[in-house]
Design a protein around this nucleic acid. Structure first.
Lengths: 156, 156
DNA sequence: ATTGAAAATGAGAATAAATCGCAATTAAAA
DNA sequence: TTTTAATTGCGATTTATTCTCATTTTCAAT
């Protein structure tokens, strides 16, 4: 059994919850995917692989995985909740291009440190955080300069 | 005419959009509210005040206000998009207590600076950012210590 | 192994948030 | 004014997610 399963099982046991085949399947699929995903995508992917578990179970399992600390919700992008791995995937923050949707991941030790310091000052025990910066990537900045009429999404 | 209206009007004119009474009403209501709000709340509030504009118009106007820079989406909290003022309300980040839902606002000049620096390095032009830290406030940390069976939301 | 209680499941109905289509209306530039 | 593109309201629709509940399953204690 791999490490993530052990963690999840442990988490579940601690709260009197069960490590069912369905939950196992979701966990497995989650960690076979790379990058961000949402509940529906995961369900479809499982379906494609002939793993027949209900949407409801997928929707019920993902929040448990979040609470177990294995995954986290990402910044909300287009109306649906999306997730990313935490386990085995060092923490990082995001830049999100408003123009083309590109995601740039980054990590700043200094920012992390400052955050922790601020939390300490407030007596706050941080569990998880998200920093998302919206803006325009290099390419989209160039594109925008060439338009006459300002597009709705222009930064200017 | 107040400053926010001037800004919004200007923004709209620049893209060939119109400063209609409905948009004016939404803008007005937005800035009469304090703290976070969502589309439905705003609609209800307007309805209560006998300002009869359709939900659709509210939903259509809020994104425009975001694009104008007057307001911003907040961290997603419970499935619906919520907003907060930007104009006249200095930017701030959030700590969100998982236990009781309390929101602590804070601002760190140092973090802001670091963010800008990182963006520069990536050729990214930031427009807006959100930093949200989830965790447990002082009180909830105390409460948790006293429980036997771990609640679903426990940090441990 | 058996059992029993609590928890989980699937299927689809239900809800909630947000968007869309369209005919009628309106803002604002000419 | 006139004109024209933009906007409105309404309700229908879509999309995401949650809920209901009868049935099944897990797991700890026999």
């Amino acid at each position: 059994m791999d490490k993530t399963a052990a963690i999840f099982k442990e988490f579940l046991k601690g709260r009197g919850l069960k490590f069912t085949p369905e939950r196992k399947a979701v966990l497995r699929e989650v960690f076979s995917l790379h990058r961000h995903f949402d509940a529906e995508t995961l369900y479809q992917e499982l379906y494609r692989k002939k793993v027949r578990i209900s949407r409801a179970s997928v929707y019920r399992t993902l929040p448990l995985l979040v609470k177990s600390g294995l995954i986290a919700e990402t910044l909300r992008c287009q109306g649906k909740t999306s997730y990313e791995h935490i386990y085995g995937h060092g923490h990082h923050d995001h830049m999100l291009c408003i123009g083309c949707g590109k995601v740039i991941e980054f990590r700043s030790e200094k920012i992390e440190k400052l955050q922790n310091e601020i939390c300490r000052r407030h007596g706050f025990k941080p569990v998880e955080h998200r920093l998302g910066i919206k803006g325009y990537c290099r390419e989209c900045q160039r594109k925008i300069k060439m338009k006459k009429k300002l597009p709705l999404d222009s930064a200017e």
